[in-house]
Design a protein around this nucleic acid. Sequence first.
RNA 1: GCCCGGGUGGCGGAAUGGUAUACGCGAAGGACUUAAAAUCCUUUGCCCUAAAGGCUUGUGGGUUCGAGUCCCACCCCGGGCACCA
Length: 828
Amino acid sequence: MPAFSKIEKKWQKLWLKAGVYEPDLKSSSKGNKDPFYNLMMFPYPSAEGLHIGSVRTFTGVDIYGRLKRMQGFDTFEPIGLDGFGINSENYALKIGKHPMKLAKVTEKNFYRQLEMIGNGFAWNEKLETYDPEYYRWTQWVFVQMFKKGLAYRKKSPVNWCPSCKTVLADEQVVAGECERCGSKVEKKNLEQWFFKITDYAEQLLRDLEDLDWSEKVKIAQKNWIGRSEGYSIKFPLVGVPGQEDRKHVVEVFTTRPDTLFGATFIVISPELAKRWFDIGWQASGSVAKYVDEALMRRGRGQDSEAENEKTGVFSGINAINPANQEKIPVWIADYVLDTYGTGAIMAVPAHDERDFEFAKKFDLPIREVISPDGRDHDLRVSFTDRGVLINSGKFNGINNEVAKTEITDFAGGEKKVHYRLRDWLISRQRYWGPPIPMIFCEACRTAGKGERPEMPGWYAVQEKDLPVKLPFIKDYQPQGTGTSPLAKSKEFYKVKCPGCKADAKRETDVSDTFLDSSWYFFRYIDTKNKKAPFDRWRARKWLPVHMYIGGAEHAVLHLMYARFITKVFKNWGLINFDEPFKKFRAHGLITKDGAKMSKSRGNIVSPDEYIKKFGVDVMRVYLAFLAPFDQGGDFRDQGITGITRFLARVGKLESKLAKNSKEALDEGSEKLFHQTMKKVGEDIENLHYNTAISQLMVLLNKLETLPSVPWTVYENFLKMLAPFAPFLTEELWQKFKKAKSFKKQNSIHLQDWPKFDKNKIKEDRFNLVVQINGKVRATLDAPVGISEKDAEKLVFEDESIKKYFRPPGGGSPKKTIFVPNRLINFVV
RNA sequence: GCCCGGGUGGCGGAAUGGUAUACGCGAAGGACUUAAAAUCCUUUGCCCUAAAGGCUUGUGGGUUCGAGUCCCACCCCGGGCACCA
């Protein structure tokens, strides 16, 4: 066994035994240390184990946590497994192993690897989302959502993945494809459970402002919520068969009411047309045919493709433009989305690209009403910029921004805000998740009874009956029938109605994995609580999370859901804050040969072989040195030798230790030493691990040239390296301190972080850069604080610079720029 | 199409508007060694035999005494959103 392996094993054991990384969760008082909750996104365990990218993320999070611990914080760095969900289940299906059994295997393997990587995890608080003691509270959350009216059932067109055989939330559909398996997502009309996240759209958007988060994640959330301020305008309908004219209206949502005079037709979505059929509109055969075909295309996921030719049909109905009383046709077309606004638009071809394209194709009138110069033009493309109104009656000549409210008022419209965000679809027709803890009673439904008036027949499982355990069933394959495999298990679904005691049926769908992970950071602080999801006093001390690090790919998924659940908890009075993560930083992605690591590409790099070959410390330092933490990069093992050398040289420094503790550094080295203490601390704080390490290398290079290394320098060097290489530094530290037996408080990882002396960083001399016309011609040694006059004198005394002046050696420069303590530039 | 990142030696990368290429890898030469590995020392952006000099941060402009850094236009790579009215 290599020496490093022995050291790793030894310290893992001793740290664990001494509880070096266990914070004081029990007491609700702060004590003499401030709490620091250092959280990483917990992994979903796959059978092939951790890959190098996750190791880089986790050790990166740990480096930060170790700095905080040494800065005197009571640091809490928990770990767990997000083991429920389609991903784990799909893998189980593939290898033909039952998910429940597979979970035990992957759990073991994952924890083995997570123990190896040298993180200061608080192992006493680990959790797994598939543990009934955990998901009992996930179900509890669902029950509360139901009781408070935030969970509801609705039949609507939902995303359906034909390969995963389940519905998906909007957030899990990426470019029309299933986030998990890449299959084309279809639309199915199904009755499903939803959470009313849209109730919180405004708050979720507003509170983004003050969050200290990676900017790109904030932007992604903002765009996802998609607040759009617009106006709603009603167009009376004429020519509806069998209906009086102007009895019905079509309501449109627009952000451009200023173009109302240019609205030359109306377009409604096929879905809206279908609803009009349902309330009695008898459309012609060709219209009905178009609607059917369009809906079918949508069902196959063929809408929303920009390259698709526009299709549509005239409905036979007309509408009255409220601005000019003009009669305009109502068209049905699938370029209008039903899920946004009202499912109907006023088409202004002159000023909207899509309307323009449609008008051209179907030869509909195009009327210019906004003009950059007040004149009419022959439009070849739509004009979407600002301008003044023309062809708009009494509004001609006014600025289009001003016209927005004026025309809205004139047409009897009103201001309206729309969001792109839609409610969170929670149901999954799969096996490997927490059963949704609801009971449905047909008798009660018929009688109009139930726990909530708006949902007759539905009852939440009582708290004392939680968890509703996921049964072990042999036949766990997804069915594709729109129901979960649990629907086949009578023992599971047969239950008495909590209301009338008649035979009733359990909900057989399970909930979305993202519900499991939306609240896990609350549970970490109190994993053994059997009375509540978490203790509110502990929450007061430990939450919100101080630092959260994870992948940016969760910007609109996990991070949005966690914020939503937190806001809900706040509303319920469980907590006194409304944002879960004070600070969030996205890490970069590690690729292999330029491609994302994935099983299908076969380019997954396993950390095991590297750890075995080079040791954990080398692995950690290398991964931190490879690229800026927030950037990521391509994994190559090329540079790893450099790190092996670096750590070996650190080990050798011991032989250079000064004979007595009084010895000090020379002035130049002393300065570098203090600069290093400053920079390493600051760099870790900013997650600039690569530059922190390079600074340590610079210092080491210097120390090696010295005849001896003073004790304090050696001590502090080890401390600065400790977050990166926890094993080696602990070993060297204990040896240096000549410790007989290991005690928690003697661990290097609980020592005070080095403090630099800012007076020692001050330079008294510097390189004065001499430029002629902006080109560097010389550098001269000069005292700090030198005046412009003295600097000039210094330059003129220097032989090598004389030739640049005109005439050489004489003449005065046209201009002199002097930057104190940096440079002097002569323009000649 | 829109919104974010990013483009710097052979490679990973470093640079508050002020000495571009820190640190590391690789490469070349040398020391030690019977030899190799390891280790140590030296060199290493490009052009030029060398010196002197010149050129160089995706491309082209601009601002400035001075631009990798700021502004404008464009090209390429990565990511997100995408018929959202």
